[in-house]
Amino acid sequence: MKMILTIIFRLTVSCLIAGTIMGMTFIVTNKAKKANEFAREEKVVYSLMGYSHDNPIPDSMGMHEVFRYVVTEGDQQSIGYLVPMGAHGEGGGFSFIRISLDGTFIDQAEVVLSEDKVREIGDRDAAIQAAVGDSRQIRFTDQTIVVTDHGKRLAYLLHGKFPGFKTNIAVMLALDPAYSMVGLEVMEHEEDPGLGAEIEQDYFKNQFKYKPFDKIKSLEVVKAPMPGEYVDALEGRIDEADALKIMEQYKDQDIYALTGATISSDAVSSGVKGITKKFAYRLDILDNVLEGQQIEVPF
């Protein structure tokens, strides 16, 4: 009996010490981790839009985040969008707009939320929950950034995730207002180095650049050697004007698969296709509703 008690006591003390060490590390590193993730995302956003830290986005441009939620009430489902209100630069607060599954407007509710808290998922969920009432359940699905210049839409930035060859691949895409591709960046993946991991290389991901929406809708992967001039253009080895000309020439071409990684290539191309098509469909509905209800938004 005494031995058991000794063991229990010593194990408990060891566990408490271990827990304290781990907890302290978490507190110290968590801040750095979040800052890192945010910095990386910002960098990707800048580079997709053609800006860098030294060449920052001008003041006339705005980035407006739209968050999409699924709202469940009993066995009824609807889609909710958290959108900023008012014209650009006025800071008119946020509104939660509910749309039924067939695309008709249901209601609009004011959400009390400050600009810097909208990114924190906990604060955001709580604020929306308070606005829609306790009888409805909300679930966050995705977010889109609408980039505007002088109040006119310039681009959409979308986050996306889809299954790759091994685990999920997370990407960020930039589309222009006609849903043509502006750029693609691979944020996270665990594909095989040397094979599927090549999806993050310029010569693969830049193939998506400048593809028109009509082409993206039917995007396929071809197993064929990539023409040399196209590789040079994608890798940025020739000057920009020439590269653009070549890209233009290949813009209706399917995606050339990576050697030894057809499944990864196919996963990215169909993932991008799916994200773009769904986004275009959803945004058209949202735009229709915003116009029909004369809701003023900054984008």
Binding site: S14, C15, A18, I21, M22, T25, F26, T29, N30, A32, K33, N36, E37, R40
Partner: peptide, 20 residues
């Protein structure tokens, strides 16, 4: 195992934060 797990968690969190 507990000792190893503690130090692994420490290095895991540190790497995740500073060498993403």
């Amino acid at each position: 195992t507990l000792t190893i797990a503690t130090w692994v968690t420490v290095i895991d969190l540190t790497l995740a934060a500073y060498f993403p």
